[in-house]
């Protein structure tokens, strides 16, 4: 005769311990997210909010006035991201490799100095760089003059061709500490035995970096890439602090964040339109979601994790 199955006890403590985090997260993240998605399906006629389905998205992508701004902002966003991937992350990896070298003196000092800008506010960084690069009061023109390169100076933030790249590089300057720290930690966790085994096989110096260390920190580089992607496509503060909501000159620094802000809250005589603003915010959410999924399913799974 089978013994009666004991009823599993409900383990209340799990729910109780999870509740605070779940509640707070729901209130400040999940609810606003879904409410924004919902808001993008409505519009205001007179004083009433009515449901219009995907009409806002059709305006955003179909109306030339809106779509031109959207694609411009998206294109700028990709350029912003490209500069970070091509400049910030390689420099971050290189700095980490140099810092992890046991022969480097004062490495703690360098590490802190490079990391400090990361903890500064965007507003401080934006204003400081705006002043540094200012053609009137800035130190950039006189510093270039001192080494005889005054001819290289241009009012970069005011030129359409350079403004976005300049701001991207300012952002790189600010955040290069993050990939550096993450890679540095990953490099430190590589056991010495592996490197010593490599040395026995004649792999030393640069070869050790390319053939042993780099493959071992690839998963970290992957994580950094996806963090950069999410941060860049959510960016807003630096552009707003340096160039204002119109993201001048001639919208050459306009990214999705500033475009969304302008639309949602309005600007000067332009009245705010929360519904179109939400549509743009939803599009941003979609783009980031697609990017993250591509990474997770396309790249993350192929990366090998080594266990030591």
């Amino acid at each position: 005769m089978p013994s009666p199955i004991r009823k599993p006890q409900i383990r209340w403590h799990i729910a109780v311990f999870l509740a605070p985090a779940v509640l707070v997260y729901t209130a400040v993240m999940i609810y606003p997210l879904f409410n924004t998605l919902r808001l993008s399906l409505y519009t205001e006629v007179g004083q009433e909010r009515i449901f219009v389905g995907l009409e806002n998205f059709r305006t955003l992508f179909g109306d030339a006035n809106w779509s031109r701004q959207f694609w411009n902002a998206l294109g700028n966003n990709f350029w912003f991201f490209a500069i970070h991937m091509l400049v910030q992350n390689p420099i971050g990896v290189a700095l980490a490799a140099i810092l992890s070298s046991p022969r480097l003196r004062f490495s703690n000092f360098y590490r802190s100095a490079i990391f400090i800008p990361t903890i500064l506010s965007f507003v401080i960084v934006g204003f400081a760089w705006k002043l540094i690069l200012s053609p009137i009061w800035g130190i950039a023109p006189s510093m270039l003059d001192a080494i005889g390169l005054k001819s290289l100076y241009a009012p970069w933030l005011g030129r359409e061709a350079y403004a976005l790249t300049t701001l991207s590089l300012v952002s790189v300057w600010q955040f290069v500490g993050i990939p550096m720290m993450l890679i540095y930690a990953a490099l430190l966790s590589i056991p010495d035995e592996i490197l010593e085994a490599g040395e026995c096989d004649g792999i030393t110096g640069m070869a050790a970096f390319w053939k042993i260390k780099l493959p071992l920190v690839l998963p970290s580089i992957g994580i950094i890439s996806i963090l950069t992607f999410v941060a860049n496509f959510n960016a807003f503060d630096l552009i707003y602090a340096a160039q204002g909501a119109l993201a001048g000159p001639d919208f050459s620094t306009d990214i999705l964040g500033t475009f969304m802000y302008r639309t949602f809250f309005g600007f000067q005589l332009q009245l705010g339109d929360p519904h179109m603003g939400s549509a743009i915010a939803s599009a941003m959410f979609g783009i980031i979601l697609i990017g993250v999924c591509l990474y997770l399913f396309g790249i993350q799974r192929r990366l090998r994790n080594y266990q030591f």
Partner: peptide
């Protein structure tokens, strides 16, 4: 004036 492309409103006031 030089670099007016990057000159802000407070810059102009100060100049």
């Amino acid at each position: 004036g030089d670099g007016y492309e990057a000159q802000t409103y407070p810059d102009s006031q100060n100049i």
